[in-house]
Design a binder for these strands. Sequence first.
DNA 1: CTTAAGAACGGACCCACACCCTACC
DNA 2: CCGGTAGGGTGTGGGTCCGTTCTTA
Length: 342
Amino acid sequence: MVAESWSTTAKRCDACKTTPSTVFCKADMAFLCLPCDSKIHAANKLASRHARVWVCEVCEHAPASVTCKADAAALCVTCDQDIHSANPLAGRHERFPIVPFYDSASAESRSAAADHEHEEEETEEEEAEAESWLLQVPSNNTQGIEYKSAEYLFSDADPYVEMDIIADQKPCSTTNIVQLHHNHQEYKEDCVVPHVMNKNEIQLQGQVVDGYPTYEIDFSSGSKSFMYHFSTQSISQSVSSSEVGVVPDHNTMTDVSNTFVKNSVVNGLPNPVSSSDREARVLRYREKRKNRKFEKTIRYASRKAYAETRPRIKGRFAKRTENDVGDSLVASDASYGVVPSF
DNA sequence: CTTAAGAACGGACCCACACCCTACC
DNA sequence: CCGGTAGGGTGTGGGTCCGTTCTTA
């Protein structure tokens, strides 16, 4: 059931309307396939400066916000939360914020990109330019609006931006307010958060730690809170409640994450995501992961070196014998001063 | 078409110990 | 505030176990 919707549910390119989209252009607020992206963003210098990000490889309906190194996957906030909250182990996957690219997507891309490129005929430069200008005008379609909040939340404008999203329990049409605090400036925009927020308070804070931009998303719901912390160097996850190490339940984290981006605004109406949707997302993710190369991240090369030289019994580490101890000293000397390999 | 048995697959777990990180003096 | 020390926690890889999925009869 889920597998059937695998490719057919991928979001169509906003330009050609036929090919599944693979990139999202923030400036145009448009989902594009690789050929259209190449055409449109190579049309003129202005268009070539549009920052683009990959579309989430799981739901294929939202801009990716993080890259999971362990899974080699670009994921949107919603899928990231769903997948990496599935179990404590997944929660420890190292993830990095998506870095927008400005070159042609096909140049950036994964191997599959080339195939699509060959299929596409080169078109007139004027036509592409016209298409580009058309897309620069924010369309009235729901997608454009739908991800407007996501663009704010993950704006690459300034790592020092602090954003507080405060929502009460009233419907979107009343008093939900987004406040952006930046250098004493304050921006307010109505109706960004749908009413399904249910008194959750979301904070996105950016700061620089050790030279790396660092972001924190704080999902607080009543007595429970979920702190999501990541930087461009590394990522850590902490759950500041009694549920440490326990899969967050659907009502707390998943609802918040779904609300966070995907359901930000859909025609001004909430779009609640059921547990079946969450399950489907995870299944789709696992299916795609099968086709990827699993790359294990080694944080400490020295530990790896020791592990490889360590005696084993049926795959398990065993106590060293006296001879092994001697070898260990040699190995220790050899690896002296090894710097952790991040 | 349905069912059951076997095969294949994948993820979790275990082990020892050097190193990292924090608290303390 | 800085340096040294102690102690607990973490990460590392290969084999094995076991549950799930797939294949075949």
